[in-house]
């Protein structure tokens, strides 16, 4: 059990690191899928099977398909790979990486001040989530639907604009 947790956690981190260092977009997307699947395992270990399933279906499924489609439409090739290589010089990523390292160190430091606690994660079923979702958070569901609608309209608008300009 512990091994599985360690494995999935480290796989998540490894995948994420690979995502941000790849030069070819499709490779990065594949690594992102790996990251998300590993993260879904972590969710399942945390006693959230519903979240895990959603992560696989929606994130690793639907949203990643969007990415793949867009990459297909962009029609990237060898020059893009060369350019990415040029953009990924140590001189360029040195500063931001330092900044992130400082932030990470600070986060770890502040986490270490928390008390160590052991707890077992008992599973929360989809039923609990549903009851909570359509009970006290029903207004939030409405708001999220508004958000999705707004996203839809925006994406449509931007896309249509592009058609007309052609």
């Amino acid at each position: 059990m512990n091994t599985l947790a360690l494995l999935s956690g480290s796989l998540t981190l490894l995948g994420a690191i690979m995502v941000i260092t790849r030069r070819v977009a499709v490779h990065a997307v594949l690594y992102l899928v790996v990251t998300l699947l590993a993260l879904a395992t972590v969710f399942a270990l945390l006693g959230a099977p519903f979240a895990a399933v959603l992560e696989v279906i929606i994130y690793a499924g639907a949203i990643m398909v969007l990415f793949v489609f867009v990459i297909m439409m962009l029609n990237l090739g060898q020059p893009d790979r060369e350019r990415e290589k040029e953009w990924l010089r140590p001189r360029i990523w040195g500063g931001p990486a330092l900044l992130s390292t400082i932030l990470c160190a600070e986060l770890i430091y502040s986490l270490s001040t928390l008390p160590q606690q052991t707890d077992s994660f008992s599973p929360l079923s989809a039923r609990d989530v549903g009851l909570s979702l359509f009970g006290p958070y029903v207004l939030m569901v409405e708001l999220v639907s508004f958000l999705l609608l707004a996203g839809l309209v925006t994406a449509f608008h931007i896309g249509r604009h592009r058609m007309e300009n052609r």
Partner: peptide
């Protein structure tokens, strides 16, 4: 933003 976050965390810690 990150730099500001760092500074805020430092001051908080």
């Amino acid at each position: 933003i990150v730099a500001g976050l760092c500074a805020a965390l430092v001051s908080g810690v």
